[in-house]
């Protein structure tokens, strides 16, 4: 009984925690962008503007939830929920600290890949359902981008999997006790980082929504709570990818024992979240064909090479 209670607690904690973090990111991103742009960012609502999050939430919740008459209503409604669902599901396999994990699946990594591949639908369906040419273009770009980068993402992780010999996240973390995988798997890390950005369609790879060309692309027609889901979903995605990077390449909760493991985890995770924000602050959006050729012509061979070399090394050591 007690175990079940703990389990429930963990589930609730993870859910609430991640959603809170994601929401908090609204503030963090704005603030950090401001810092890198030598601005001060939100500072009005509450001390240092930290209640900006609440204000934004309130705004989103109370906006009119407008469904344009020309859209495919069912799909239009389903689309934003997919991203929330798939990413929240992914969090269930993330071990924040020893024991703090909802489901310690032995195919954890695959589960993450599976869920992230489902994430592609949100863009595609939103773009299609909006019945609007900009949205459709955004959706198409999103589809192509996400299927392509999913390939490299999966491949980049295989190096880690080969080294650990397991898809289990806890195993992966434990295997990094001596050395974080970022060292032997640096190429994998870089590829995963880039692919992760593309998967969450964050800047600079935000072609599906590209404000300047597609006027917000796939979610042009969305407003209110549905837009909010995209919005939060994006931040959840960032969080997730940061968690994954932390676990896969930076030793998860491992760290000197003067801090509890969960803190180490969160520190590393936040570092990567900040890095995502930095990317947004610093880099320009590539052209669509550049994006695709970058992926297929550079990342794919690199990822394959990485897998090959890792495999060869592991085999020769065995």
């Amino acid at each position: 009984m007690n175990e079940i209670l703990v389990q429930i607690l963990i589930i609730v904690g993870v859910l609430l925690g991640t959603v809170t973090i994601a929401a908090g990111l609204i503030y963090v991103e704005r603030k950090m962008l401001a810092v890198w742009q030598q601005r001060s960012g939100p500072n009005r609502v509450g001390p240092f503007g930290i209640f900006q999050v609440l204000a934004d939430m309130v705004k989103i919740f109370f906006k009119e939830d407008w469904i344009p008459p020309f859209v495919d209503k069912k799909v239009f409604i389903i689309a934003p929920t997919i991203i929330m669902l798939s990413i929240l599901m992914s969090f269930s396999i993330v071990p924040f600290a020893p024991g703090i994990v909802i489901a310690d699946l032995n195919i954890g990594l695959l589960f993450f890949l599976a869920m992230s591949s489902l994430g592609a639908y949100t863009i595609v369906l939103a773009g299609w359902a909006s019945n609007n040419k900009y949205s459709l273009l955004g959706g198409m770009r999103g589809a192509a981008q996400m299927i392509s980068y999913e390939v490299f993402m999966g491949l980049s992780l295989m190096g880690v999997v080969i080294q650990v010999g397991s898809f289990n996240m806890t195993d992966i973390v434990n295997a990094q006790k001596g050395l974080w995988f970022v060292v032997p798997q640096f190429v994998g890390f870089v590829i995963f980082l880039i692919a992760g950005v593309a998967e969450t369609h964050r800047l600079p790879f935000d072609l599906p929504e590209a404000e300047s060309e597609l006027i917000a692309g796939f979610h042009s027609e969305y407003s209110g709570m549905k837009f909010g889901m995209f919005f939060v979903g994006e931040y959840l995605g960032i969080t997730l990818v940061s968690c994954m990077i932390t676990i896969l390449f930076f030793g998860g909760w491992l760290g000197p024992s003067f801090l509890p493991p969960i803190v180490w985890f969160l520190i590393k995770m936040f570092a990567f979240i900040l890095f995502f924000v930095l990317l947004r602050a610093a880099l320009a959006r590539p052209r669509y064909d550049q994006l695709m050729s970058f992926g297929w012509k550079l990342l794919l061979p690199l990822a394959l090479l990485n897998v090959l070399i890792t495999g060869a090394v592991v085999l020769s050591n065995a």
Binding site: S117, L136, I147
Partner: peptide, 21 residues
Amino acid sequence: AALEVIVYAGAILVLFVFAIM
């Protein structure tokens, strides 16, 4: 089970949607 989602739902059917779009 994971592969089914990754490959089938995540890639093949996206291709379908892509074609439809």
